[in-house]
Nucleic acid binder design. Sequence first.
DNA 1: TATAGTGTTATCGG
DNA 2: ACCGATAACACTAT
Length: 273
Amino acid sequence: MPELPEVESARRVIESYALGRRIVDVDDSDTYECRPHSPGQIRDALVGRKLTEACRRGKSMWCLTGGVGRSRTPGPELGIHLGMSGKIVVADPNGAETDGGDYWARGRAAGDHRFTRFALRFDDGGYLLLVDPRRLGRVRLDPPHEDLGPDAQGIGAAEFRAMLGRSAAPVKARLLDQHAIAGIGNLLADQALWLARVSPRHPAKELSRAEADRLHKGVRKAITDAIAGGGVHTLSVIPYRKAGAECPRDGAPMTRGTVGGRTTWWCAEEQKL
DNA sequence: TATAGTGTTATCGG
DNA sequence: ACCGATAACACTAT
């Protein structure tokens, strides 16, 4: 689920609804989601503070925190990664919930907290939840962010070409490498490659200048479209990632394969090596 | 019942 | 040490 567009939606939910509310309790008892912290460690670090800012780079989020009481000394950062199935839910004092969009809403009734793995409770009675069925998400204090590449949403053409660099890996694998460029996931990569008419298996370092620039534009457009549409599942080629589907541009059969360790669909007619 | 999956990372071989 | 490929992680949906 969450790729850059979904994480950005979640960040905006936190920014709009969770900042400035005093934290009075924290449920950090899920030792898998909160590792390497021990239960109570995150609670002890956050109780009495407020979230003051919601930040994002690629698929990683973190919140800045203020001092306890009137103290000017800021608290630790609260890092949140949504993993494969995570979603942020914020509730107002009346318990009315807001989340980052409809990407996980299907089949999951609001108010079902079976999969809540982490929770902040505010002094007004509202709360912030991380709901994550697969438990591949992460919550941690003071997460490192310097190991991420430039954010895919704002990257420039020259920086994008430099990122492709001399990598011999298939270009899709390079797009998925968060150290090289942060925020692109499996579906965003397939959409961007399809928009640019570039084969996912094309070695990154062998792309022509024109191909690299088309791909850069494809990445930017895919992200913009996904944020506007409500998630990566709304991107135009995604419905054609299935057996028997035909490319919506030229009608050629869609090809399935594994690239960069992930299931990949592309139009072999338009996206040639 | 078996398999795939919108992510990350430890591990292994080159 | 770097690079790339693969398995593993936890759990649901098909």
